[in-house]
């Protein structure tokens, strides 16, 4: 049993590593955010879950549940706010991007509404 829980933790760590690799490889801030948000969310969930299952029945097991729920609730919000701030402060998309409809709409209404 212990092996399985260790494996879950290992897979979580692997996803965290892939998130870090994505930060290095992606071309612009928005794509980096994509890799950073998704991989770290599942990575943290699996990592905590493996530790929680290995210590099932001890008093602090519930705290693992709380950690997982908070990560799910807050991780996307923070990345959304960072991406929004990046776009409004004028950081451009990478050259290979196909379109930017938010910028088009902003130009239509001259600056947009913050």
């Amino acid at each position: 049993m212990e092996m399985i829980f260790a494996l879950i933790t290992l897979i979580g760590a692997l996803f965290l590593f892939l998130g870090a690799l994505g930060l290095v490889r992606m071309p612009d801030v928005y794509n980096r955010m994509q890799a950073g948000t998704k991989a770290t969310t599942l990575g943290t969930i699996l990592f905590s879950l493996g530790i929680g299952l290995a210590n099932f029945g001890s008093g602090w097991c519930g705290k693992i549940v709380i950690i997982i729920l908070f990560v799910i609730a807050t991780n996307p919000v923070s990345s959304n706010v960072i991406a929004r701030a990046a776009h409004f402060s004028g950081i451009k998309l990478a050259k290979l991007s196909l379109k930017d409809e938010l910028k088009e709409d902003d130009e239509k209404t001259e600056g947009g509404t913050l």
Partner: peptide
């Protein structure tokens, strides 16, 4: 995401849609 990050050619066509 893992697939895109690992693959050497980095297959992405990013953009912002409405």
């Amino acid at each position: 995401v893992a697939r895109r990050v690992i693959s050497p050619k980095l297959p992405i066509n990013p953009g912002i849609v409405k």
